[in-house]
């Protein structure tokens, strides 16, 4: 079959809503785009463990400590699950992890901000997991089978994280004046990064046209961001908190909340490596991988010896 014809058939399958599976023919660009997206997503789950892990030892009650530990553990599970999804595209987990450790792969830029108080743990669950769910619910409708199925499974846990995060923030906002201040301060710092999190505006998103044509993404960044804002603003108000945007207003005609200008310069600055924690986040993961290497080597050496013992026993 001619390349052109294959491509046309592929597009037909996509347009009729069929899922593409690992053994199916796919254009190289489709494979590339998916590999890029899924591995970025996997790295984000793993890097995201760091800012939240930062408060496990200081969680202010044992109940919160257990919930936070379980949440960070879920994120590790998401990472594993996504690394397996990316392996269906013919790359190894090791390859994609190395790309990231060498600074060649991206991950969700929001994790390059520091967690400075306990309220940041609430803000991350509420805002970051909140934006992630909206994005991932959309990705769950995407055309690549393994990725879309991974999203369905992950979304269930994310919505639990999201509720838990909002509950932390809500409790703080109803607490002592100092606690309320802590919650407001967290919202002030995380609001802009959160609304930037789903990605740049459609007219400045280099991959959007292609990923949407192949229905890897089925909705645009602008649509997702607006949905997140519309959902989150009333939640902030219900908790008695103020969104840090004096131009924020509700448009009666469209039914949408409209924000003031979004600081895209800031977004690109952090994406390009110059956020407050970019270096630290990569270094922490490099350290963990380094600690992992001698452990894995030992396990492999031990397994080899055991295999030999097994052989001599049966001989």
């Amino acid at each position: 079959m001619e390349e052109q014809e294959k491509l046309a058939r592929f597009q037909e399958r996509i347009d009729s809503g069929q899922k593409i599976e690992p053994k199916d023919w796919m254009p190289e660009r489709y494979r590339k785009q998916l590999t890029r997206m899924i591995s970025q997503h996997a790295h984000s789950e793993i890097v995201g463990m760091l800012p939240e892990g930062n408060w496990i030892t200081r969680a202010p009650s044992l109940r919160r400590k257990v919930a936070l530990l379980a949440k960070v553990q879920d994120e590790a599970g998401h990472g594993l699950y996504l690394y397996s999804a990316v392996e269906t595209l013919g790359v190894t987990r090791e390859d994609v992890i190395n790309e990231y450790l060498e600074g060649r792969a991206k991950y969700s830029s929001i994790f390059n901000y520091p967690t400075l108080t306990w309220a940041d743990i609430g803000a991350i669950g509420w805002l970051v997991d909140g934006a992630a769910i909206i994005n991932q619910t959309m990705l769950a409708r995407g055309s690549y089978g393994p990725y879309s199925r991974a999203m369905v499974r992950i979304c269930k846990e994310e919505s639990f994280h999201n509720r838990q995060g909002y509950e932390i923030i809500y409790t703080l906002a109803q607490g002592t004046p100092e606690q309320k201040q802590m919650a407001q301060d967290a919202l002030n710092r995380w609001w802009q990064p959160a609304i930037q999190m789903v990605g740049p505006p459609d007219d400045n998103s280099p991959n959007s046209a292609e990923t949407m044509r192949w229905q890897i993404k089925v909705e645009s960044n602008d649509v997702i961001r607006q949905r997140f804002i519309d959902r989150t603003v009333p939640q902030a108000h219900a908790a008695g908190l103020t969104i840090p945007d004096d131009q924020l207003k509700f448009n009666e005609e469209t039914g949408h909340w409209e924000t003031g200008p979004i600081d895209w310069d800031e977004f690109w600055r952090v994406v390009k490596g110059n956020g407050p924690c970019n270096r630290q986040r990569i270094q922490d993961r490099i350290n963990a991988e380094r600690e992992g290497q001698w452990v894995l080597d030992a396990a492999a050496a031990y397994a080899k010896k055991q295999g030999k013992k097994q052989l001599t026993l049966t001989e």
Partner: peptide
Amino acid sequence: SEWTAHGPVLEHDIALTN
């Protein structure tokens, strides 16, 4: 819990956290 997010290999990060 100090190991969580810093564990050697993801699988063991999960096990230690468990």
